[in-house]
Design a protein around this nucleic acid. Structure first.
Lengths: 99, 99
DNA sequence: TTCATATATTCAATAATTTGAATATATAAG
DNA sequence: CTTATATATTCAAATTATTGAATATATGAA
């Protein structure tokens, strides 16, 4: 089947999507979230990075829509909120990870 | 099946892959190359951008390995050189383009 | 209310990317 | 050789992303 070229708006959005996931720490975050929702504290402990840094990465992921949040008391749970997220992860596992 | 976390080297490489494709003009280039090899001149004409700009995008794609080149006389043909390229394109078409 | 915990925001410094202009190189034709 | 064409490289300016430190906010407990 022949594909029509994506229109500029869509190309722009796809670029944003890829850029949002392109950072190693954000990749590790979404990879972690594949196994289920996690609090910010859990993510910080897992990545061993300053809380502010993680918070900023989470914000970017959330602004794009790759993750969503749910507060539970003092904690905020982050979870994958866009199927494209898992698909891209699988794609890079397939193509860029050693077998 | 349970996935082991990708190791840091691989994560780094995946980040590079995504960043390399994340630019709208580079996305349009690989999208164009899906239909077969094209000369730099053809790519420039298609995108209507300065030749030097296109050349720099092509260089980035080539350095990562997403495309490879073949000279024919004065022209240089660029072609997709990594399957991940098509897979990611299909992935973003599926998830970020309107149906 | 006050205190402690969890998370978010702001800000400034640094680093990386993008851009266009100018120039360079390589090839083919004459 | 010289010229024209196709592509690549260099460079500096502008923009955008990343980082860490400091501070702010929100919630729950006492």
């Amino acid at each position: 089947m022949k594909q029509a070229p994506l229109d500029p708006k869509v190309i722009q959005r796809c670029g944003n999507a890829l850029r949002t996931l392109a950072h190693p720490e954000r990749l590790r975050i979404v990879e972690l979230l594949e196994s289920g929702p996690k609090t910010v504290g859990e993510i910080v402990a897992y990545l061993r990075r300053p809380q502010a840094t993680i918070s900023q990465h989470l914000m970017r992921l959330r602004v794009f829509g790759f993750v969503h949040t749910k507060r539970d008391g003092r904690s905020i749970y982050y979870a994958i909120g866009h199927a494209g997220c898992r698909t891209i992860l699988n794609c890079i596992r397939t193509h860029f990870a050693p077998k």
